[in-house]
Amino acid sequence: MDDAPLIEARGLTKRFGEFVAVDGIDFAVACGETFGFLGPNGAGKSSTMRMIGAVSPVSGGTLRVLGLDPATHGAEIKQRLGVVPQQDTLDFELTVYENILVYGRYFGLPKDVIRTRADELLEFVQLNERRDSRVEPLSGGMKRRLTIARALVNEPSLLLLDEPTTGLDPQARHVLWDRLYRLKQQGVTQVLTTHYMDEAEQLCDRLVVMDRAKIVAQGSPRELIRKYVQREVVELRFAGEPSVDGRLDGLGDRVEVLADRILIGTDDGDACVHAVHERGVAVESMLVRRSTLEDVFLTLTGRTLVD
């Protein structure tokens, strides 16, 4: 019924003294979409999230969240936000249920409403059997799921997830992705930051790539791949330092030499593999894979996402 953006930023800037953490970025998040900030650590993703969450004053530019200015309507915005911070902020002394109860009270929800919702939410994040356990001994993945359940207690219009799966093991990540995907199907607008390209590809309808406080590209994962890189990548691995003495010249459309391997971007991976063999390059192994957001990032910045 309204197609105005839930979040709109123009020239959004965050400075800490001399240091510029976010440098004049523009973006808009529409209702119902899952929007991502992809970039390495220190790119300014978390600073942006904190400004959206109205816990960090904007240093420059304009920001509207749910149509409101965080500087003047922080409490009103927060009343409708769900926030999953990068580091756990659960009360370890309390039980799983009590963490949700205490949190729900900050929104002014009556206890019986919180109790009903907590039971639903704990079911949703598969923690109903741990309802009355203390939080401290729970695994990292469980704690993160509890944080998500807690963030949903006020039925937020907008869910902010700052690095939702950082530090989790692969299985726990997949459980979490599955839950976030379901929320998306239920129509919950999500904004997330990540430095995992697979996470961004799995979850985001649209994303911006951030590097050094700036947005360097934006679009859907497929658009970004189509726009910035070739369809496939041939990865060459070497026994020692990669050394090719110009023998790859003219192969593929783009060659990236990394510390441990060489990547060749091409629209025809098999032909490229064949050519490498023909030229007698002494590789230890070679594989063809489809291009990912990691390759987009590498092309745009010359660096990898996770060092």
Binding site: G53, V55, G74, A75, E76, K78, Q79, L81, V83, P85, Q87, D88, T89, L90, D91, F92, Y103, Y106, F107, G108, R150, N154
Partner: peptide
């Protein structure tokens, strides 16, 4: 424990 950060993510000032 950073629990105060959780409180300030809500309408509490």
């Amino acid at each position: 424990l950073r629990t105060y950060h959780a409180v300030l993510a809500t309408p509490v000032r």
